[in-house]
Amino acid sequence: MLTLAFAAVTALLATATLMPVLRSGAWWIRGFDFPRLQLLLLSALVLALQLVFHPIDDPWTTAIVIVNAACMLWQAWWIVPYTRIARVEVADAPADARTRIRLLASNVLMTNRDATPLLEQVRAHRPDVLIAVETDAWWEARLDTLSDLLPHAVRCPLDNLYGMHVYSRLPLHDAQIRYLVEDDIPSVHATLELDDGRRVALRALHPRPPSPTESDGSEERDAELVLAGRAAQASDLPVIVAGDLNDVAWSRTTRLFRKLSGLLDPRIGRGMYNTFHARLPGLRWPLDHLFHSRHFTLVGMQRLEHVGSDHFPILVELALSPGCNDPDAGLDADAADQAQAREALEDATFSADATARG
């Protein structure tokens, strides 16, 4: 009886482990990209219980142990880079690096009507740039009170959970609100002028997630990441891409974005920095991201305290110090990746307005 129980649980874990391998955008398949750590821990628990309570003395029990171990190893392959076991991808900033930029990104949760915790964090940490998503007109009125610290702004208040605001201490040039794929999902594109006059391309994103309440599939999200990745690769300026991407750092689609863009992830070798879900400690994963070109090194990165949202804010400080990162850092796109990117764009449904603007 115990053998059947362990076999049934192991079969479920193996199915959940293999689901992301399927090249489908269906939300109920793509959702298995997220809980890799949780699935690894469940496989480890089942394996430990079997070793303690059930002898490994026949082919069935041996097979169950092997399958569970294989599940653990497969999940670990994806998430170990986001632990301190791995080598860091982004070098620590040199002590004498003077040109720095500090960014704070927060999904505020549109229905959250207490702006005070976030406003206090902004005033405490004094970022050069604040990226806020899920912002409507109510949130805009509260965030505008930060104009003494962050006088430059791009505002796109929406009541559909996809509003976006960017506030900056630094001058913003060529600022645009663009709808890359869907005509109700904005992104902000601007050029930041740093204190020493050098300029940086900033891209703020918040694509729609695959979920039963948002979108049946991930096609539109995946296409937006492809477009953003290609734009970053084509930029002549140092690039920062940040926001709630509604995708985990280790997913196939985020890895494709990193390959297409050539951008680096400062979390690699340092930690997951899980930002969602703020109210469910056992079910958290990294949805809020900041990627950057190899022009930057890392001064510091931290997940901030809860601000009443279902996301934690994240604070990242970078130094503009070209030549300090390993020239081989990051991921490279091959022919198969380029084909996958073309397929992602073909599978997405572009709105008429978005096609014209994107």
Rank of each mutant, 00 (worst) to 15 (best):
A95P: 01
L49R: 14
A11H: 13
T62D: 05
R23L: 06
A44G: 03
R279I: 07
Y167S: 09
A115Y: 13
A175R: 08
G323P: 14
L298K: 07
E140W: 15
L315H: 10
H295S: 09
L194F: 06
L104M: 07
V316G: 03
D136V: 14
G358N: 02
D184E: 08
V299L: 08
S24R: 07
V129W: 12
N325C: 14
E193S: 04
T254Y: 13
L315W: 11
A204R: 07
R255P: 11
V307W: 02
D216W: 12
D353Y: 05
L304T: 07
G269S: 14
T355G: 03
N160L: 07
R123I: 15
M1G: 03
A348K: 09
W138L: 14
M301D: 08
P55L: 12
T349F: 11
H295I: 15
E219A: 10
G217Q: 13
A278C: 02
A115R: 09
G217I: 11
D159T: 05
P238A: 02
D310A: 02
A232G: 08
L109F: 09
P127I: 14
D244W: 15
V166T: 10
R155T: 02
P212K: 11
R113K: 12
A175W: 06
T17I: 00
L264M: 13
W78V: 00
P35A: 01
V67S: 04
N246Q: 13
E134W: 02
P171H: 02
W28D: 07
V200K: 03
T111H: 12
A16M: 08
T349K: 12
S251C: 07
L180D: 12
G323S: 07
E120G: 05
P117S: 02
T145M: 10
D58V: 15
I85W: 15
Y179F: 14
V46Q: 04
I240P: 02
